[in-house]
Amino acid sequence: MQNLQRNMIISAVLLGMFAVSGTFFVAYTEQQTRPLIAEQIRIATLKHLNRLVPDDQHDNDLLTDVIRVTDPLLGSDDAMTVYRARKNNQPIAAMFTVVAPDGYSGKIRILLGIKYTGELSGVHIIAHKETPGLGDAIDGEKSDWNQQFIGKSLQQPHEKNWRVKKDGGEFDQLTGATISPRAVVKAVHKGLLFFKANRDKLFETKTNTP
């Protein structure tokens, strides 16, 4: 009996030690890589922003001229960063992320570039978990599906056509995948509504991030 108890304690302690050392290695790696990962994400963000608004169209620093906004139309409870492009202090465009909560497998994060006039300068999928080979074609790296948004606005097409073709709208779906495109179209439309309702406030507000 005593022997059994002793064995159980040894096993438990051993298991605990493995758990502690495993956690230690993961935590150590996380701590070491955190600044590197943050830098990688910053570079990737800047690359995305520059494709929405090329460098020659603005003269401010996109990564610092930002405000944080919380709005249900953005699809998230978290504050979202709004990047603002200006030239000679005139507003050119705003870029911000909207979240489509209803992707095929989880949330889809979409970076929108909207010109001051209300036209989309581009739509980039920045994070998603859609099925490889099917729904993931919403990603601009994998297909040019997202190109069809360029130049679209709340006026063009009309409100009721902000849907995929299968639902009677004018946006293409993907072969074998309707749910992911449907989610993206809906989220982009909401993003445009948000921009319309808040446009001037977005550009006037002073930078409010630390």
């Binding site: 290695f25 993961v26 790696t29 996380e30 890589t33 590197l36 990962i37 990688q40």
Partner: peptide, 10 residues
Amino acid sequence: TIIELLMQAF
């Protein structure tokens, strides 16, 4: 997890 973090960093 460690491989995932290292890939993300490098």
